[in-house]
Design a protein around this nucleic acid. Sequence first.
DNA 1: GTTGGATGCATACAGTCTGTATGTGAATTC
DNA 2: GAATTCACATACAGACTGTATGCATCCAAC
Lengths: 196, 196
Amino acid sequence: MQEKSERKSNKYRSEEMRARLLSAARALFVEKGFAETSTPEIVKAAEVTRGALYHHFADKTDVFRAVVWAEAAAITEAIEAAAIGTEKDPLLAGSRGYFEAMRVPGRVRLMLIDAPAVLGLAEVAAVDAGNGRGSIAAGLREAAPGLAAAQVEALALILSAAFERAALEVAQGAPQDTYIDAFRTLWDGVVAGAPR
Amino acid sequence: MQEKSERKSNKYRSEEMRARLLSAARALFVEKGFAETSTPEIVKAAEVTRGALYHHFADKTDVFRAVVWAEAAAITEAIEAAAIGTEKDPLLAGSRGYFEAMRVPGRVRLMLIDAPAVLGLAEVAAVDAGNGRGSIAAGLREAAPGLAAAQVEALALILSAAFERAALEVAQGAPQDTYIDAFRTLWDGVVAGAPR
DNA sequence: GTTGGATGCATACAGTCTGTATGTGAATTC
DNA sequence: GAATTCACATACAGACTGTATGCATCCAAC
């Protein structure tokens, strides 16, 4: 006979519960946005109670924070997975990878629309520190070594904003190649015009 | 003797009330953001009741919408006021004007952070239709007539995103000249690289 | 200029949400 | 195996949103 009440370690239970909550929360945030999603909805979808949610997270914002960090990790992973073996043009590969990653439904809303409003700019900057901006800055330093450090930083920042906006359009159905071309135009222009 | 209960036309009363509410709401949205501002706070600051607010606006979002549209008009006006008589370099003048306009405290939060989350991308696009993107597209068409229409649209969109991001940094204290230079670098690169 | 109705706004209410306090059984520690 | 901690459920207090209702003022028609 099987055991009726399966014994589980606290650690296992906690991880299980966190995953359930985050999964349910992610689905709702993606579908309806942060403001329109309530904690009762989240716990109902996860088939638990609000007690569990507030045991694992400080508040609703904290749930959102966890979802965003997890999503950022997933995006980074997707980009890296898409980039392996594509050594000939890392910029193009990275662009395509990011665009594809951001086409996962709702990601744009989650990461580019809601996250800045809910978490603030500072935290969002920290979230994708390893992502776009860093890669762009590194690429700039390599392709245009004559640029001053401050210029590299400024250019990387506004280029990454341009890039994100392009991804947003692509995610909403705009033709990917148009925006890859557009971004490449910016990039090439910067590199060509930079002091050598 | 003065009249005790001054008679006022309905039209006058309504306009007065709307202005009071919008002024109070703007101050609070700017200071604390949309989500952290409650309608009781707004009407308290305006020294009226929620009845007045819900008489003039459909809901809290509708108040925010009105504030954003008014702010967009103010920004456009400020830019145009700053640009008069500066015929030698319209791009530079426009950049400085926008940067300066966006340094009004809280405008960045209102227009660039909260508005997309609260009103959605479509409406935000409509709000600043006359603003940045249109000017950039027009400037592109003039400076680089060889570009295809689709490319102009795409470039204008991502350039305006870069531009807004630059303004955001400047509003938070970054040196303006650094970001004007950075944006000009993008611009010049696009123009130089475009087919003639 | 009086009357009937519309308008502007205040008050009152119902429902929902958030975060916290408290309680209970299972797991861990000694 | 007793004591304690942990994971979670239940219960509660406060606040907020949007709506329904009531009253006073304004306006239009006669």
